[in-house]
Nucleic acid binder design. Sequence first.
DNA 1: CTGAAAGCGCTAACAG
DNA 2: CTGTTAGCGCTTTCAG
Lengths: 336, 336
Amino acid sequence: MSTTSHKPPVIGDVAREAGVSVPTVSRVLTGAARVSEEKRQRVLKAIERLDFRPSVTARALVARRPRLIAVLAGNTSRYGYAETIRGIEESARAAGYTVSITVVETADEEVVDSAVALVLNQPIAGIVVLKFDRPGVAALHRLPKSIPTVSISGVRETGVPQAVLNESDAAHELVEYLLDLGHRTVHHVRVPPSRKEDGRTTGWRRALIARGAEVPTPFDASWDPESGRIIGMELADRPEVTAVFCGNDEIAMGVIRGLYERGRSVPRDVSVVGFDDHPLARMWTPPLTTVDQDFAGLGSRAYGLLDGLIEGRKVRMFSVERPPIVVRESASPPRG
Amino acid sequence: MSTTSHKPPVIGDVAREAGVSVPTVSRVLTGAARVSEEKRQRVLKAIERLDFRPSVTARALVARRPRLIAVLAGNTSRYGYAETIRGIEESARAAGYTVSITVVETADEEVVDSAVALVLNQPIAGIVVLKFDRPGVAALHRLPKSIPTVSISGVRETGVPQAVLNESDAAHELVEYLLDLGHRTVHHVRVPPSRKEDGRTTGWRRALIARGAEVPTPFDASWDPESGRIIGMELADRPEVTAVFCGNDEIAMGVIRGLYERGRSVPRDVSVVGFDDHPLARMWTPPLTTVDQDFAGLGSRAYGLLDGLIEGRKVRMFSVERPPIVVRESASPPRG
DNA sequence: CTGAAAGCGCTAACAG
DNA sequence: CTGTTAGCGCTTTCAG
């Protein structure tokens, strides 16, 4: 006398349907022990007939460790973020983990706390926090120490294990390249920093100081290319500006556009370089000189560290990589 | 005599530490019933001291419905995908859901099945599948019917409830615009279609036929702008090509670059239009004429449908929006 | 208000 | 091989 309920079937329903005990069903489900072929078939049939799917929650409660990795980020769709997440997901998936994403919109306490609460409300094996911006940094600070956590950043910092792209060295090299071209100094348009100063800005500053060049006040852009365009228009009115180092390629494209709208040509009138090697950087006119950041690889390395933590292996605190600069056509010697 | 174990504390530990029963701890945790202020404080202290966090898995098993929404997509980092995911996550988070992402790399059966298995291996409340490509379509077909599912697409199709951006109408309008400018026909470079033909291509074809224009064979690009560049170079050698409608802005930018590298100018020599209104479309030289696709809104609408399904409300099968075209400077009347 | 008792759905340990 | 017996960690009756 089966009650036609509309709730999903449970293992007991299958057992009854197949005329076996619950553990026997479990055995065919997990393959943990041998079951006679006959009962096995009956069970399989019953499972099919009932469209039964074991409750992952119940399974998790009994034995299995969580197979979910949470990513906390200030953003998901901008190039660097999206690629980093892609790298994490790809590696995690290969290892049988699912990745969840929760964005931390601002660094406000409430916002951060509610995002963190959301994350902790899932059965997670570990957390990756993208520390590219203020919200990311804030989130990291609110996470309980008891959960395996790694961070991703553009600069080495103590705390949890960290995957980093050494941005300051790359920026340093890029600025030196500009200086070597003959520019007296290099102006800088930065993206929203994660703390006082990001690696890109630090590298720029150091290179300038090392060469005894003047260090101009940086311009502040948002993540929107449009903000770069506005700054580009301002820059167009300042003849002393001959070289500009932008915080990322999208901003560089905006800056170039702004310059162009004000009648200045790149690189003839002013050289502009970016950072990241966005897929469109090479399509731009002129093709952008920039730094090739392997974000997907970065995400992948972060997963590697996290996996070590989860498995209880001894993991090193840093996985650092030095991104190479890629010279194209948006920078040249200054005029005259 | 407390055993100093290194396993995370459970509710029983807290109860012992506070000198109360387990249900009492549970009551202060959930606020489900009144607890004397004194015991309440003792419990809170014990929780703090032990750094206890209730097992979400156990909680889920007892009562709570899953608070995880899975997104299945062929890709996560390309503009349209990333923005759509952002829209889903934003709405889901506002409603207290976390979003997981799993990529379906190809439409191969094994690949699709393992991605689907990964998703079903989490306690999920519902699924949204991005049906922008073959892998997405394939994944949708392998999903059990018993789980609330919605899809996102550029064209109306029967099946599960669906959020759609009416791409064919927009493409139709864009092609008409080009024809009105005086072009005899419009060539088409398409991105990888999700089925025989995508809405963008259908709209293009229909517009051409409606006007009695010749329908040239479309060119096939990948998602990589570089593939657009290659095609652009080919196009440069064909003087009969005066207008090109590209499957998305990134491809359009590649096409323009290829044309440019072969000495042709846009829009003077050939008009090129894109699709999506990528943030860089407006920065491009020339600024791209395109279709303004509200991907984030699309994701948000998809979440709305899914939420209805999860809550058991009656939900309509379609949430359709018609994206507007945005005229900028990459298209003009043909020369001569 | 509060403790004892009874599960949630599944797997593991233990006898046969 | 297979059924019975115990839980996993938490919430929810159900008596007091």
